[in-house]
Simulated assay, not measured.
Amino acid sequence: MESPESGKGTASGDRDWRDRWWVFGLLALVVWVGVRLLLSGLHAWPSALVGGVIYVGWLTWWMRRRRKRDARAVGTDADNVPGMDRRILKGGDVPDDPAEREAMARLVDRRQERLVRNRRWAFPLLAVIFFGTSGLWFAAGSATSGGVMLAAAVVFMSWMVWQHRRTLRRLEDMRRRLAEQPPVRA
Rank of each mutant, 00 (worst) to 15 (best):
M149P: 05
F131C: 11
R110M: 09
G146A: 03
G135D: 03
K90G: 11
R170C: 01
A139Y: 14
N118M: 10
D97V: 01
G147H: 01
M149H: 01
I88L: 04
A105W: 02
I88C: 03
L171E: 01
E102P: 06
L150S: 11
R111N: 14
T133V: 12
V128H: 04
A105V: 00
F156V: 12
L89D: 11
F130H: 11
R110I: 05
S145V: 11
P98N: 04
A99H: 09
E172R: 15
I129N: 05
G92D: 06
F156N: 09
P124Q: 06
Q163C: 09
G91V: 07
R119Q: 13
N118A: 03
E113P: 02
Q163A: 14
R165C: 08
V148E: 03
R119V: 07
L126T: 12
T167V: 10
F131H: 10
L168E: 09
R117Y: 07
M149E: 09
R170P: 00
L126V: 13
V128W: 11
G147D: 02
D85R: 13
R106M: 00
P98Y: 00
R110L: 15
M157K: 03
M149A: 14
A152T: 08
G147Y: 03
G91Q: 07
A127S: 13
A151F: 10
L115H: 09
M160A: 13
F138V: 08
N118F: 08
R169C: 07
V116R: 13
A103I: 02
S145T: 10
L171F: 02
A122C: 06
D96V: 09
A153V: 05
G141K: 00
N80R: 14
S142Y: 09
D109V: 01
L115V: 02
A153E: 00
V108Q: 02
M157A: 07
E113A: 15
L107W: 03
V155G: 06
L125E: 06
L125T: 13
R86P: 06
P124Y: 04
V108A: 01
V128I: 11
R110V: 02
A151R: 02
V116N: 07
M157H: 12
R111A: 10
M104W: 01
R165Q: 12
S145N: 12
S158H: 09
M104R: 07
N118H: 12
M149L: 14
I88Y: 01
W162F: 14
E100N: 00
N80M: 15
E102R: 12
A152G: 04
G92M: 06
R120V: 10
F131M: 12
V154N: 05
I88N: 00
S158P: 08
R110K: 11
V108R: 02
R110C: 03
T133I: 11
F138W: 15
D85Y: 09
M149F: 10
M157L: 15
M157Y: 13
N80E: 15
L107I: 00
G141V: 03
E172T: 11
R117M: 08
G91R: 06
M160K: 11
I129H: 02
R165Y: 10
A152R: 04
R165E: 13
L126P: 05
L168P: 00
